[in-house]
């Protein structure tokens, strides 16, 4: 399932990433389930547009967050793989 940094993550059909005004939180709504990302997860998902590669997402986050790129890369790729396995993303 792992797509590596060349993968082009995109939300599966029927999956919506949006800000829920009632919960005051970003949510990922998929058929019959709801994903609630924390702040870091939200920052990753905001960059998923089907055009940006996983590597480009990592570069963007590495430029903004105070952590080594390889640490961010490990977490981002694991998160994308996990969401793909759970049916929210395609890689």
């Amino acid at each position: 399932m792992s797509g590596g940094e060349d993968a082009l993550p995109r939300f599966r059909r029927g999956v919506r990433f949006r800000f829920d005004e009632i919960r005051q939180q970003w949510t990922l709504l998929a058929p019959e389930k709801l994903f609630l990302p924390d702040e870091t997860g939200t920052e990753i998902l905001k960059l998923v547009d089907g055009e940006r590669s996983a590597g480009a997402i990592i570069d963007d986050l590495a430029a903004r967050f105070d952590a080594p790129r390889d640490v961010i890369a490990t977490d981002v790729l694991a998160t994308l793989d996990d969401l793909a396995a759970r049916g929210a993303l395609t890689l």
Binding site: L36, D38, I44, F65, A67, I72, T79
Partner: peptide, 13 residues
């Protein structure tokens, strides 16, 4: 802006 390992909770509707 410190990096924290992402956590995504899944809830069955």
């Amino acid at each position: 802006m410190s990096w924290k390992t992402p956590k995504i909770v899944e809830i069955a509707l």
